[in-house]
Amino acid sequence: MADKNALYWKACLRLIGSCLLVWFLVSYVFAILLVEPLNTIHLGGYKLGFWFAQQGSIYTFVILIFFYSWQMNKLDHKFDVYEE
């Protein structure tokens, strides 16, 4: 039982880690650190770096949370810790 919970926790940490990697990438890397090179690329009337800073990162955050929530429910079922 304890082992199974430990495995569940490991899987959770892996999921959280990959989601936060994306979180960091779109906001800190694309919108701040690499904003100048990305601004040379255009997305419609937007410069890409600027788009990430004022639009794109926010959309990504929303998608990330729902993705995380969906994956967590799958993990909960898989490890039989789903709350009835």
Partner: peptide
């Protein structure tokens, strides 16, 4: 202008941390 993005990201990105952590 661009720098306003730090408020937009700062006040939304926190919810990712909240949801996951």
């Amino acid at each position: 202008g661009y720098e306003g993005g730090m408020y937009l990201m700062g006040w939304t990105g926190g919810y990712v941390l909240l949801a996951m952590l």
